[in-house]
């Protein structure tokens, strides 16, 4: 993929993430300040498909956005070759995607 495409993907994923990060932070603040128990939180996140859908989108955006940025940082600050940097970025993206989706699955309540 060309650098220009990666740049565009990073910007577009940032565009998606920006409001989601705010909402995500709001949810965290609300959940911890309101003193909700783990069960109460899980009951809420599993009560509607909106939360799993929201967080699936969030995870997808992160899995696109973060590896591209990580790749830029590694390329600039390390002597790893282009192939090495790409491999690390793709690997990191894949792990983020898997762990993220696994977490979404866990809080969705669909498994139980």
């Amino acid at each position: 993929m060309s650098e220009a495409r990666l740049f565009v993907l990073q910007r577009l994923s940032a565009l998606v993430m920006a409001p989601m990060v705010l909402l995500h932070l709001g949810v965290i603040l609300y959940a911890t300040r309101a003193g909700l128990s783990a069960e109460a939180i899980l009951a809420r996140t599993g009560s509607t498909p909106l939360w799993p859908v929201f967080y699936t989108l969030f995870v997808l955006a992160v899995a696109v956005h973060v590896p591209i940025g990580l790749r830029n940082v590694l390329r600039e600050w390390t002597s790893l070759g282009r192939a090495g940097v790409n491999a690390i970025a793709i690997g990191f993206g894949a792990i983020s995607l898997l762990l993220g989706l696994r977490a979404v699955w866990a809080v969705s309540g669909w498994a139980s």
Partner: peptide
């Protein structure tokens, strides 16, 4: 201009 070493850097 957008290739590696271009504006993205």
């Amino acid at each position: 201009a957008m290739d590696q070493g271009g504006c993205g850097s």
